[in-house]
Design a protein around this nucleic acid. Structure first.
Lengths: 172, 172
DNA sequence: AATTTTAGTCAGGGGGACCTGATTAAAATG
DNA sequence: CATTTTAATCAGGTCCCCCTGACTAAAATT
């Protein structure tokens, strides 16, 4: 049974981290004139981009199913991404009902660079600390995956695959 | 100079953490029928609530200034919070132009409980790991504060105070 | 007393994440 | 061949964050 106060301290820091990194992003975007730098969130358009980065050439329906979205929402996000030139739509030749979504070079780049960047704040950590952090976050993330799977056993593991596989490609 | 690969691993885990915790929250909210459980984000209404939790009884203008919002946006969020019974508005007697915003008991409770909760995923960590995590996040957060201050030196430290002071109250 | 500054309000808008309902076109199936 | 299922689309809506512009009421300044 871990010490409750240690847990609280860590929880606080984690929350603080969430807040501060969020604000740092926002501030950077606003003051640094990086207007078109959409921060690749884990929802909506960002989710689509990320999924395609792992498995390109999916149909809209496939995307919707994987991401637990309605086909209409998916279509909306895809269309927005098309406008931003990050993905393309083309009719499938084998089944002309289907629309295949593919990343453009820009889209692939966007997904990769935004996520593969090593944040500057990691420079302050020693190698030992980096190892510790990685170990700890691995544990935490596993717990979160379990939590998600427990709540939605119907689609067990689907989300984890989308996320984890992709991150493995990028970082390992 | 820290090892670049260790940095990348940690960065990946951190990003993964962001994604997974976000999804876990979302999934919990959706499937667990906790509809009215607004997750106290670090924007909009949540930001207001958080700030008031640290310094109650501010005027709308004060809030706007501290949070780097326009007075109109601030008014909007405050009004939404009033509807949710989390804050109250009252005219200042000393200066009748001003509107003082105060947390209701429910508001204070909401701010506190939502943030003071120790996430279940921390149970998997040992005391040693909790200490390590706290140390590491303290460093990281400091760096992020510096980053924010560098970009917006005009209001240096303001944000940090709002966040850090409040978290100190909660967790230390 | 007249003017300017300050705190708020209303109106309107842009963009984002989602959703339901109704409809069409193409494929599958009886 | 007629019907049903499937992949998409359009239309319209809800809620969120956040901004500009125009306008009042009260306080501060001249």
């Amino acid at each position: 049974m871990p010490n409750i106060n240690k847990q609280k301290s860590a929880a606080g820091k984690l929350i603080e981290f969430g807040m501060v990194s969020h604000t740092a992003d926002e501030v950077a975007r606003r003051y640094h004139a990086e207007q078109d730098k959409h921060p690749l969130r884990f929802q909506g358009q960002g989710k689509i981009l990320l999924t395609l980065a792992q498995a390109d050439g999916l149909s809209q329906k496939e995307l919707a199913t994987r991401l637990n979205l309605t086909v209409q929402s998916t279509a909306e996000f895809v269309n927005k991404l098309v406008k931003k030139q990050l993905v393309t739509k083309e009719k499938s030749t084998s089944d002309r009902r289907k629309t295949i979504i593919r990343l453009t070079d820009l889209g692939r780049e966007t997904a990769a660079t935004e996520t593969a960047q090593v944040p500057a704040y990691l420079d302050s950590l020693t190698d030992t600390e980096l190892d510790q952090l990685t170990t700890i976050l691995t544990k935490i993330n596993h717990n979160l995956y379990d939590e998600i799977d427990t709540i939605t056993p119907d689609q067990s593991g689907k989300f984890q695959q989308v996320v984890a596989d992709r991150l493995r490609d990028w970082f390992l």
